[in-house]
Nucleic acid binder design. Structure first.
Lengths: 330, 330
DNA sequence: CTGAAAGCGCTAACAC
DNA sequence: GTGTTAGCGCTTTCAG
């Protein structure tokens, strides 16, 4: 920058003004400086500038796994709003690992990100309190903050699961298997609650044999379903409350030749769900909307919004494609 | 940091040493400093440290679209190797937009990333030459660098398309439709070349009516296929050289009721391709491997490897699942 | 509209 | 093993 100033015959501060597109610099000087910048291949050092100005133009996004379609879609939405501010996004995957979350949060705070989008792996977030007090802006996504107060954008999992289950009940199903993720995961637990509530609303009792949680992968879902169906009175419908598990369930039904006999509803849409045979009925969470909301809230905070933290609930939507509309066998 | 030093009763430099886990600090002092850090909720300012040390611990990843499974998988692989170094990844999507690429490269260079992974939208990369000369390390992924010399990790698209086409020919198909992306996109062009080469190798002539390029989305692929099949002598097989297009083609065949009559091979695998009916035969590119290779090469350069830039070709693999093994109609 | 001086928070290079 | 001095590249404050 010194060299640029010298070549352009102006002061350091003037170069700084031009580079930062500040107003109040005369056009000829802007031109002169710009020319010098190009001639010298000068690259403004954003890091150095941050040191004094206290804003990095970076937001952090700590997601579950950027390679799964939910996290990836979220990231894309965040990126789109960040870009409008000429901000940039630092991402990492947590893989449900508690230690990783704490370490990455520490790292991002150390890098002085202007804000943080967090889809937490931990269940207790009080460790964030000092940073929050120090001015860190955080928006939780998909999972609720515990032990601290901050904004969140959540899917209404209870309602989504309730709707899915009610949909199956409405078609006459009475034996509905719930295949779910680890019950310790908050969203999974809420879906279980929604399932139970729908049964209760229909005046039914919960049959513990029809609840199989702890399914994380499509393989686990597939095997779990095969196990359950190897019984004298198998279910007539399946609610698979995680997308990978729904895929496993679909695969298992295919293997059993029951794709068109057993109803199946999944939670969380994914590409190609409509191309399966039958098309997979799912509860869809609008990732684009969730990401945009989270980013908008984060930027409102960055812009100085000091209203009380809010919990934003995004309603999921039941998308009928065929698999969920199969009636119980006569 | 000054406060920490004061509280611990040591010098600034000693705190710096402890925070950076440098050797040659006595255990009791480390403990004292660590305690002071915790008491004060001190957060090491990585940005300030970078200013002096000239390394940011950040790599940039400019990909096509982080929400598609190819880019997302790549990003995940990059992240995994970066994490082993306690580095972090700055990502953005280019969406084939030339201007965006240049702007983001400029931004990331300004942020002094230690290295850059680039899946370019541009076709001329000479604009990078000054930065390269200034020491920027760049590894190209999926597309070749033009106008500069730097490392790249590419999929052997010609061979992949050749194999796919030969596979169809081997089953007796003679009228094979090639549905491809914009021919101006390098990878798409190479796939067209592979298709042509396979026909030539089988002693066949290229029928221009059987080449439909410019298909970008699944909708376009679907319509294009419907158009082609609305003819007196439709093809008996389809090679869809882009994953979204293959999905559109599968959807179109489904609509025509020809899923089991017409052979279909796609390029680039995606989740659930095996669950379609019939399972979709594809040419698979190993994203995990590509990402790991690119990151390893980038870090080798960062570590000072000055050997000549190399072009690494990853062979794609034909994955048979049924749709590509349908024989031509008698 | 432009510039000079001070300092952001840290680490390199050296001394002790 | 630990401390001191200088300065990374920029922006802030205030003066002109």
């Amino acid at each position: 920058m010194r060299d640029v100033a010298a070549l352009a015959g102006v002061s350091l501060k003037t170069v700084s003004r031009v580079v930062n597109r500040e107003p109040n610099v005369s056009a000829p000087i802007v031109a002169k400086v710009t020319r010098a910048v190009e001639r010298l291949n000068y690259r403004h050092n954003v890091g150095a500038s941050n040191l004094r100005s206290r804003r990095t133009g970076v937001i952090g996004a700590l997601l579950q796994d950027v390679s799964n379609s939910f996290s990836a879609g979220l990231l894309r939405a965040l990126e789109d709003v960040a870009r409008q501010r000429r901000h940039v996004v630092l991402t990492a995957s947590l893989d449900e690992e508690v230690e990783r979350e704490r370490q990455l949060v520490g790292d991002l705070v150390g890098r002085r990100v202007d804000g943080l989008i967090l889809m937490p792996a931990t269940r207790d977030h009080s460790y964030l309190a000092p940073d929050l007090r120090a001015g860190l802006r955080v928006v939780f996504v998909d999972r609720e903050p515990h032990g601290i107060v901050t904004d969140s954008v959540l899917v209404d999992n209870v309602t989504g699961a309730f709707d899915a289950t009610r949909h199956l009940l409405g078609q006459g199903h009475r034996r509905i298997l719930h295949l779910g993720d680890l019950d310790t995961i908050e969203t999974a637990h809420q879906r279980q609650l929604g399932y139970e509530a729908a049964l209760r609303a229909a005046g039914m009792r919960l049959d513990p044999d029809l609840v199989v949680t702890g399914q994380r992968t499509s393989e686990m879902g597939e095997e779990a379903l095969l196990r359950v169906f190897d019984s004298p009175s198998p279910p007539t419908a399946v609610f698979a409350s995680r997308n990978t598990v729904a895929i496993g369930a679909a695969r298992a039904l295919r293997r059993l030749g029951l794709s068109h006999q057993i109803a199946l509803v999944g939670f969380d849409d994914f590409p190609l769900a409509d191309l399966l045979e039958p098309g997979l009925t799912v509860v869809r969470q609008d990732v684009g909307l969730i990401g945009r909301m989270a980013a908008d809230i984060l930027y409102a905070r960055i812009d100085g919004d000091t209203s009380p933290a809010e919990r934003h609930l995004v309603p999921p939507k039941l998308v009928l494609r065929g698999s969920g509309e199969i009636p119980p066998r006569a």
